[in-house]
Amino acid sequence: MLTERPTWMTWGLLAAASIVTTWILSADSVDRRWALVAIFVVAAWKVRLVMTDFIELRRAPLLGRLAFEGWAVLVPLTLVVLLWQ
């Protein structure tokens, strides 16, 4: 059974995650590498949330979901690896 989140709830989750990322995780007091990982994990989750809830990929064919939601995971992961140094 697919659960449908109301739009306002999706917006609230995305906004809260953005506030945490912008004004807490990016603070200089947070270790650079931990911050890097956390910021891109949150970004990947937010991108996937926009895809599943706003674009409604949640109800799309499996292959389409795998391709685009896979992109949402692979790209941030690649960026973390490249920026890790």
């Binding site: 912008t22 990016s26 650079r32 911050a35 910021i39 970004a43 926009v50 960026l79 920026l83």
Partner: peptide, 12 residues
């Protein structure tokens, strides 16, 4: 934008 923003503005 959810990826551009952390990449350019936040990642240290």
């Amino acid at each position: 934008w959810l990826l551009i923003f952390p990449l350019l503005y936040l990642a240290r």
